[in-house]
C-alpha cells in the first residue's frame, strides 16, 4: 500500500459504510413497507379503503375487520384452516421424525434410495398432486374434508420434517445415547429421557414450520375443498367479486400467524433451511 492510499482509505471506507447502511435500511423498508400498507388498509373503515386518495396513516377503525369476521363462511374457513394446519403439523412430525432419527443414527441398505425419494419430492410441483387425489378422495369419502386436505399438506411438509429432524438428531452426539444405554436405559427410554428433551425445541420449530406450510397453501386447498374451504381457498374463490376491504382484512389475517411463527422459530430458521436443504 502506498502512502496516498493510506490517506484515502478512511474516507473511502466511511463512504462505503454509508452505502452499506443505506442498503440495509432500504432492504428492510422494502420488506416492511408493503406489510405496513396492508396494515393501514386493514385498520381502516371499509369506506376509507374504497376511497381515494389513501392516507398512509392507519385510522385504527375496526370496520373492515368486523366486516370480515361477519362475512358469511369466513369463521368456518378460519376454523378449517386451523384444523388442517394442526393435523398437518401432527402428522408430518409423527411420521417424519422417526425417519429423521433413522437417517441420523443408522447405516442401512437402501438409505441412499430413501434419501433420494425424500429429495425427489422437492423437484416436483407438489400441489399438482391434488388433481388425481381429488378423484381418489371422492371414492374414499375423503373429499371436501379437513383430513383429506391435511394428507396432501402433509406430503408437502414431510420432506422438510424428515430433513430438519435428521439434522436435529445429527446434532446430538451418539455418545450421549450410548451413555444412557450403559446407565440402564433401553433404546426407548434413552430416547425419551435424553434425546427428546434435547431436540424438543427444534422439533417444535419444525412443527410450527409444517403448520405454516399448510396455513399458506392455496392450490391444493382450492382443488380439494368445496364446502369446507380453508381461508386461502375461500379468499381465492372470492377474489373476483369480494370487496377490497374483505380482501385486505383476509390477507392481514393470513399474514399475522405467519409473522408470529417466523418470529418464534427464527433461531432455527437457518439450521432448518440451510443445513437440511443441502
Amino acid at each position: 500500500m502506498t502512502a496516498v492510499a493510506d490517506v484515502v482509505a478512511p474516507d473511502a471506507r466511511k463512504a462505503g459504510r454509508g452505502v452499506y447502511r443505506t442498503g440495509v435500511i432500504l432492504l428492510c423498508a422494502w420488506v416492511i413497507v408493503p406489510l405496513y400498507l396492508l396494515f393501514v388498509n386493514t385498520m381502516s373503515s371499509p369506506e376509507t379503503v374504497n376511497s381515494f386518495p389513501k392516507s398512509f396513516i392507519p385510522e385504527f377503525n375496526m370496520g373492515s375487520l368486523n366486516f370480515f369476521m361477519g362475512f358469511q363462511g369466513i369463521l368456518m374457513a378460519l376454523w378449517n384452516s386451523v384444523v388442517v394446519a394442526v393435523l398437518t403439523m401432527v402428522m408430518s412430525i409423527t411420521i417424519g421424525a422417526p425417519a429423521g432419527y433413522a437417517l441420523s443414527r443408522f447405516e442401512f441398505r437402501g438409505k441412499e434410495l430413501f434419501r433420494l425419494l425424500i429429495l425427489l419430492t422437492r423437484a416436483f410441483p407438489l400441489p399438482l398432486l391434488a388433481l388425481p387425489l381429488a378423484v381418489l378422495f371422492i371414492r374414499t369419502g375423503l373429499d371436501d374434508t379437513a383430513f383429506g386436505l391435511s394428507l396432501v399438506h402433509t406430503t408437502l411438509a414431510i420432506p422438510f420434517a424428515v430433513l430438519i429432524t435428521f439434522s436435529l438428531f445429527s446434532g446430538i452426539p451418539l455418545e450421549l445415547e450410548e451413555a444412557a444405554w450403559t446407565l440402564g436405559c433401553t433404546r426407548l427410554t434413552a430416547f425419551t429421557k435424553v434425546i427428546l428433551p434435547l431436540v424438543l425445541p427444534g422439533i417444535t420449530a419444525s412443527a410450527i414450520f409444517a403448520f405454516v406450510i399448510s396455513w399458506n397453501e392455496v392450490f391444493a386447498a382450492a382443488v380439494l375443498t368445496i364446502e369446507n374451504r380453508t381461508l386461502p381457498a375461500f379468499l381465492l374463490q372470492t377474489l373476483g367479486e369480494a370487496p377490497l376491504h374483505l380482501k385486505f382484512a383476509g390477507g392481514f389475517i393470513l399474514v399475522v400467524p405467519a409473522l408470529i411463527f417466523i418470529f418464534a422459530v427464527r433461531k432455527y430458521l437457518f439450521a432448518m433451511w440451510g443445513i437440511a436443504n443441502r
Binding site: E175, L176, E178, A179
Partner: peptide, 8 residues
C-alpha cells in the same frame, strides 16, 4: 466416554 457424554 472420551467426550464425557455428560447430559446437557
Amino acid at each position: 466416554f472420551q467426550n464425557y457424554a455428560v447430559f446437557p
